[in-house]
Design a protein around this nucleic acid. Structure first.
Lengths: 130, 130
DNA sequence: TTGTTACTGCAACTTAGTTGTAATAAATTT
DNA sequence: AAATTTATTACAACTAAGTTGCAGTAACAA
């Protein structure tokens, strides 16, 4: 179910992911590209790009789905095991370049681990002098 | 916005949380209690119970919202900083009684940390002899 | 340049959750 | 115990995110 043809739509969509660590909400993409792409196309492409290991997705506390570029992922396996950070002030979300070890839980075999951190980003910390 | 009156509805709803560590999906509660409570009531009560520190909620990878009982929380602050575990085989979700330290991120002030672990639960591990 | 079929747009749909409002039932007062 | 107050509930209607089916379009191979 990956991407086979290099279409205009893909170029338009990938252009939005200029910054490698900043995540974009799926709904935000749908809004931004409304005049250029149908929302069905956007959702379908995002899903394919994720299958191909080009982007990865995650949810924040509100259930909003975010997408960001992958680094070092393949079709076979997503290697993005970094935590994500959401600023509670400005709402900005990005990928943190640290690795969180998967904790060992007795009686269970843990294979996937996801971490969402919330707090104040650099910019908002400076603003509030707090 | 907390709970003021001890109503029948609350009794019915809280009865579902018999097990202290097993989480229940909001949609599952809506389905189970359909004949007894209106879904609006269910969602509003869950939200109030969360405000009161009686239950806490979190989202899984599919965006499904789960609720589970709190231990040691108050109206002022949710103290449930444990990770949640979802079995990729049977779908069961529960609270793990371990504490994950909030990682220190340079240039950011992290105040909330959430972790979702996925893998095989004890029961499904035994089933699959794997 | 033609044929194949992946991809896209559109409309209609689904699902989770929310909002407004009138009726009901806890809890308090008399 | 009855009356009063108002938090709570049910109902219907709505919203927002995402999905599905399908006919038309556009990559790309031959």
């Amino acid at each position: 179910m990956g991407i086979i043809r290099k279409t205009q739509s893909i170029t338009i969509l990938l252009n939005e992911f200029a910054d490698d660590t900043v995540a974009i909400a799926a709904t935000e993409l749908a809004k931004r590209l409304k005049t250029q792409l149908n929302k069905t196309t956007i959702y379908r492409l995002l899903s394919k790009l994720e299958d191909d290991g080009i982007v990865h997705s995650f949810l924040d506390r509100n259930g909003t789905k975010w997408y960001a570029k992958c680094t070092g992922c393949t079709t076979a396996k997503h290697a993005d095991i970094h935590p994500h950070f959401q600023c509670t002030d400005c709402g900005k979300v990005d990928c943190l370049s640290i690795e969180i070890p998967i904790p060992n839980i007795p009686n269970r075999k843990v294979t996937i681990s996801q971490m969402l951190l919330q707090g104040k980003c650099e910019h908002c910390l400076a603003q509030s002098s707090d």
